[in-house]
Deep mutational scan, measured.
Amino acid sequence: PVYLSVKADNSMFIGNDPVTDETMITALNALTEGKKDTTIFFRADKTVDYETLMKVMDTLHQAGYLKIGLVG
């Protein structure tokens, strides 16, 4: 499974590897070998604001990742 996490300080990680807004999709493409039907499990600290969550989800959708599971 692929886990994308947003921490309380808005830092992002794919698994244990830090990513930025600019590198997130490139890292996901490498990890999933470009398979856009891969489910991305998205988790965020409860203090992360809604705007940040939606920005990340919008970026995922624009890149073609449509299977996003929200996890606690």
Results as ranks from 00 to 15, higher is better:
L60E: 00
K46C: 10
F41S: 04
T47G: 15
K35H: 11
A30P: 01
G15V: 02
A44T: 09
E33Q: 14
A30M: 13
Q62V: 06
T39G: 04
V19Y: 03
N29A: 07
F42N: 01
V2F: 05
N29P: 00
A63G: 07
E22I: 09
V19Q: 03
F13H: 06
Y3R: 04
H61F: 11
A44P: 10
V19K: 01
L70W: 12
D21S: 11
L70M: 14
V56A: 05
P18G: 04
T26Q: 13
S11M: 11
N29W: 07
S11K: 14
P18W: 06
M12Y: 13
Y3E: 06
E33W: 06
Y3L: 10
K67S: 12
T39K: 13
D17K: 15
M57I: 12
K35C: 06
T32V: 06
T59N: 11
M54W: 10
I68Q: 03
P1G: 08
K36V: 06
T39A: 11
V71S: 09
L70V: 11
K55M: 09
Q62N: 13
Q62I: 07
I25M: 07
G72V: 14
M24I: 13
Y3A: 03
E51R: 10
S5Q: 13
L66N: 12
V19L: 03
Y65P: 00
A44R: 03
I40Q: 00
K36G: 04
V71Y: 07
V56D: 00
T47V: 09
D49T: 13
L60W: 01
L4Q: 01
D9M: 04
G15T: 02
K67W: 09
K35I: 07
Y50E: 11
N10K: 11
M12L: 10
T26V: 13
E51G: 11
N29R: 04
A8S: 10
A30S: 10
S11A: 09
K35N: 14
M12K: 05
L31A: 13
L53M: 10
T20M: 03
T23R: 04
L66F: 14
M24P: 01
T59S: 11
F13Q: 05
K46S: 14
E51D: 11
K67I: 10
E51Q: 13
A27T: 15
K7M: 15
F41R: 05
E51W: 10
L66A: 05
I68H: 03
K55L: 10
G64I: 01
I25G: 02
V71K: 06
G69F: 14
T59W: 09
A63T: 02
Y50W: 12
F13L: 07
S5H: 15
A27Q: 12
G64K: 02
T59D: 06
P18L: 13
G64N: 02
E33M: 14
V71L: 13
T47I: 09
L28W: 01
I25Y: 02
S11L: 14
L70N: 06
A8L: 06
T47S: 14
R43K: 11
D9V: 06
E22L: 10
E33L: 12
G69D: 15
I40P: 01
Q62R: 14
F42G: 00
T38H: 06
A27M: 14
D17A: 12
H61K: 14
D37T: 08
I68P: 01
R43M: 14
V19C: 05
V6L: 13
A30G: 06
L4H: 00
D21T: 15
T38Y: 07
G34L: 06
I14Q: 01
D49S: 14
M24K: 01
I68S: 03
G34W: 06
F13R: 04
P1H: 13
M57K: 06
I68D: 02
E51H: 10
L28V: 04
D49K: 12
Y50Q: 13
D45P: 04
M57N: 02
Q62T: 10
N29V: 08
K55V: 06
T20N: 09
K55D: 04
A63C: 02
D58S: 12
V71H: 10
D17W: 12
A30D: 12
I68K: 01
H61T: 10
V48P: 02
Y50T: 10
V71Q: 10
D17N: 11
G72S: 13
V48G: 03
Y65F: 09
M12E: 01
P1I: 14
N10R: 10
Y65Q: 00
L4T: 01
M57Q: 05
M24C: 03
I40R: 00
D58G: 11
D49N: 12
Y50N: 10
L31W: 08
S5V: 14
P1E: 10
Y65M: 01
Y3I: 14
D21L: 14
S5R: 10
S11T: 14
V2M: 05
F13A: 04
T52K: 13
Y65C: 01
K55R: 13
T38R: 07
G69I: 15
G72A: 12
G64E: 02
T52D: 05
N10Q: 09
G72D: 15
K67Y: 11
N10D: 06
G64F: 02
T47N: 15
M54H: 09
M54F: 09
D58V: 11
G64Q: 02
D49L: 13
D58K: 14
G72I: 15
V71I: 13
D58Q: 13
F42I: 15
M54P: 00
V19P: 00
D37A: 06
A63M: 04
T38W: 05
E22H: 07
V19R: 00
G15L: 04
F13P: 00
T20Y: 05
L53V: 15
V19N: 01
V56G: 01
R43Q: 15
L60V: 06
T47W: 10
G15D: 09
D21Q: 12
A44L: 12
P18Y: 08
G72N: 12
D21F: 15
G34Y: 06
A63W: 05
Q62G: 09
D58W: 09
D49M: 10
G34H: 08
L60P: 00
E33P: 03
K7G: 11
T26M: 14
E51L: 12
L31D: 01
V48R: 02
K55P: 02
D37R: 03
F42D: 00
T38F: 07
G64P: 00
I40A: 00
